[in-house]
Design a protein around this nucleic acid. Structure first.
Length: 215
DNA sequence: CGTTGGATTGGCT
DNA sequence: GCCAATCCAACGC
């Protein structure tokens, strides 16, 4: 299948709020240790910025978030709630500490393996949430720091970007601080988005990404 | 060292 | 809608 070329380092080395909406529609390819190839199309992401109280990087580098302070285009994987892994793409400059959380995707290739990892066959339940997405793709501690630009286990390919008018923008899910920032971006009407509820209810108007995002 | 709560999920009321 | 599951990083003493 043709997923297009890999996205270059320069794509990731920009503000997370700029990278995030442009990640919607892109293809994440995961090659398992046994050679099995899995592929998904990203439909929902969230930006985390420097000086963002909701970001793991807000209080500076620690052993856990160190990858966030490294070069853009690497995967930051963290473990939470005692049972789930979540994956992010590092953005911005070195030492900046910004990233985009991968929240949901449409399964494209390797659905059988994903179903095995997830314990369910329903395509809509395979990658519709950050924990589910990581589990479907078998992303765990070993993938923390993986280079999406040059590495073999994970790649981010160009796919087809989604037009800004087809991207919905809401507040982020599950954060207790920084709840007013509308930094969650998802494909309008996607059947594969997460069931997560925005921290602040989305008003009927002004959910498009057409207005520039701020920080 | 002890405590607290989390960028979630799934099962049950 | 509510809440338990189940680790462990971060922070305070």
């Amino acid at each position: 299948m043709r997923y297009g070329p890999r996205l270059p380092r320069s794509f990731f080395a920009r503000r997370s709020t700029q990278v995030a909406p442009e990640l919607v529609g892109r293809i994440l390819v995961r090659t398992l240790p046994d050679g099995t190839r899995l592929a998904v199309r990203l439909v929902e992401v969230e930006a985390y910025a420097p000086d963002d109280p909701a970001s793991h990087a807000f209080r500076g580098p620690t052993p856990r978030n160190l990858v966030m302070f490294g070069p853009a285009g690497h995967l930051y994987v963290y473990f939470t709630y005692g049972m789930h892994f979540c994956s992010n793409v590092v953005t911005g400059r070195i030492d900046e500490g910004s990233a985009v959380l991968l929240r949901a995707a449409e399964p494209l290739e390797g659905l059988e393996a994903m179903a095995r990892h997830r314990g369910t066959d329903a395509p809509r339940l395979l990658c519709s949430g950050p924990g589910r997405l990581a589990q479907a793709l078998a992303i765990g501690r070993a993938e923390n720091g993986a280079d999406l630009v040059r590495g073999a286990s994970l790649e981010l390919r160009a796919g087809e970007p989604v037009a800004a008018t087809r991207i919905e923008r809401t507040t982020r899910v599950g954060v207790r601080v920084g709840i007013e920032k509308r930094w969650r971006y998802l494909e309008r009407g996607s059947l594969f988005a997460s069931p997560g509820r925005p921290s602040v209810p989305t008003s009927a108007t002004q959910t498009s990404v057409s207005g520039a995002s701020r920080r």
